[in-house]
Amino acid sequence: MIHGVLLDLGGVIFVGDKALPGAVDAVARLRERRLPLRFITNTTRTPLPGMRDKLAAMGLEIAAEEMFMPAVAARIRLQAERLRPHLLVHPALQGEFQGLTGTRGTAVVIGDAGRYFDYDSLNAAFRALNGADDFLALARNRTFQDADGELSLDAGPFVAALEYASGRTATVLGKPSGDFFRAAVDSLGVAPETAVMVGDDAESDVAGAQAAGLQGILLRQGKYRAGDEAGIAPPPTAVLDDLPAAVDWILARAR
């Protein structure tokens, strides 16, 4: 039985600024059945209010508490640990960290900075890691599907570069972190084995969710490439064409 649903955003609900065919209606069908929902994204170029506005423009009204984003998790951790951030993130995301002056030390925080990744910014982060109290990666996805439909480098390769250079290992706050998935499921009030994650990334979405005890549906759209499902073990619970097909699968198994 399925008691709760986690949905990826990019490549599942939209690509660029356009909703994928049938995606908005598919979410509406889940709401009609009153299935608890959370929207899970590793997007680190857009802050939470901006993402909600983007979805609203597509016809999806999402409450703030329904959204799980790595920047929110990072801010909570920095506040709890009383750390000030050294940011290597997209300028659009910097406002999420305003007011975090810290009293105990420094944390290097890296997200998808896009074209703002350059030698100077990476070298400054590398130098900051010498003596930093924490090293946080908002995500470590290898690639994402860009607005032109092609794959582009995500934050993961840059996280790996800093790990290699510094000899330190980053704590990943977004997918595929088990803590990230478990926090989302806990907020639904359901057991992990009765929740399902729907995504287009076999590694971060499906394998990460299944390692945390959830079921996983891999969609053949977005960043999916033929044969991706063969690269993870165990295999996805299901491999389907799109979100409408996934909702059919879920509703057939929903309480």
Rank of each mutant, 00 (worst) to 15 (best):
I2G: 11
V5W: 06
G11T: 05
F14G: 02
K18D: 14
P21A: 07
G22N: 02
D25I: 10
A26R: 12
V27G: 07
R29A: 14
L30R: 11
E32V: 09
E32H: 12
R34H: 13
L35C: 11
I40H: 03
N42F: 00
T44D: 07
R45F: 08
R52S: 06
D53N: 12
L55T: 00
A56C: 01
M58L: 15
G59N: 00
L60V: 01
P70Q: 01
A71F: 11
V72P: 11
A73T: 09
R75Y: 08
R75D: 03
Q79R: 15
R84Y: 10
H90T: 06
Q94S: 15
G105V: 04
T106D: 15
V108A: 03
I110C: 13
G111S: 04
G111P: 05
Y116D: 14
F117R: 05
D118I: 12
Y119A: 14
S121C: 09
L122C: 12
A125C: 08
L129A: 06
F135L: 09
D146S: 15
A147K: 13
A147F: 12
A147H: 13
S152H: 10
S152K: 12
S152P: 01
D154R: 01
A155L: 00
P157V: 06
Y164H: 14
L173K: 11
D179I: 11
F180W: 00
D186P: 04
S187G: 03
G189F: 05
P192I: 08
T194L: 14
M197L: 00
D200N: 09
D201S: 01
G208A: 05
R220S: 07
D228V: 10
E229Q: 12
P234N: 01
P235Y: 00
P236T: 00
V247L: 08
D248S: 10
I250P: 11
R255E: 14
R255W: 10
